[in-house]
């Protein structure tokens, strides 16, 4: 079954009782409990990394590394923040480090669009105005969109990914990226402005 990335649980930083239980069991060495935590957050972690890298293989590898590193550091998790915030921060740091080490922009390896994309009202409005060949144009738009995202700096792309795609709040993003809300808003504004310029022929 191909899980769509927009079916992930809502972004909530509040620690849930279920999470606490699973974390304490995993800290005691219960791999099944950690397995449950992986299943709970794998889609959101993978999606964040994928939108940052625009490369499925890199995203899969980094997502695995994130969960491996989290498992190794699980003993140090005190529960001050939610497990969601904690593992998200690991993923964000790992991804930004990876992108800094990757000197040249990597080759894009884009995932397929799911069936719902053709029926998304926002997308339909944009596509139908321009072409009757909807499927072809969707793929072209996807490539242009990802290319435009890759033009942004890592920090700006991360803010757009977390806010406009993942739906996180400004406060959560600030917590994840170790910056204040003002910085998050400013980066978001600048990133959208850049994207608007890169995608002008699709928007105007």
């Amino acid at each position: 079954m191909a899980a769509t990335l927009n079916e992930s649980p809502p972004a909530d930083a509040a620690p849930t009782p279920e999470d606490r239980l699973l974390v304490s069991r995993a800290q005691a060495g219960d791999l099944e409990a950690y397995d449950a935590l992986i299943r709970r957050y794998q889609e959101r972690i993978y999606a964040t990394i994928y939108h940052m890298t625009s490369n499925h293989e890199d995203a899969a590898d980094l997502a695995q590394e994130t969960f491996v590193k989290a498992h190794r550091a699980l003993k140090t998790f005190k529960g001050d923040s939610s497990f969601f915030t904690w593992i998200y921060r690991i993923a964000v740091n790992k991804t930004i480090n990876f992108l800094k080490q990757r000197r040249h922009r990597g080759q894009m390896s884009l995932n397929d669009l799911d069936f719902n994309a053709e029926h998304d009202p926002d997308i339909v409005a944009l596509i139908s105005e321009r072409t009757p060949h909807r499927e072809v144009k969707l793929r072209e738009l996807q490539e242009r969109l990802n290319a435009a995202m890759q033009q942004l700096s890592d920090e700006h792309r991360m803010v757009v990914t977390l806010h406009d795609i993942q739906g996180l709040r400004h406060e959560q993003i600030g917590e994840l990226m170790n910056c204040n809300v003002g910085t998050v808003r400013s980066r978001l504004y600048y990133a959208r402005q850049q994207l608007q310029a890169y995608l002008a022929d699709w928007i105007e």
């Binding site: 191909a2 499925h56 995932n111 397929d112 669009l113 998304d120 997308i123 990802n146 959208r192």
Partner: peptide, 16 residues
């Protein structure tokens, strides 16, 4: 418009 375009990213899915 940018936010509408970015909505497309949510429909990108990994292999089955």
């Amino acid at each position: 418009s940018v936010r509408c375009l970015l909505a497309l990213k949510r429909h990108e899915v990994p292999p089955p």
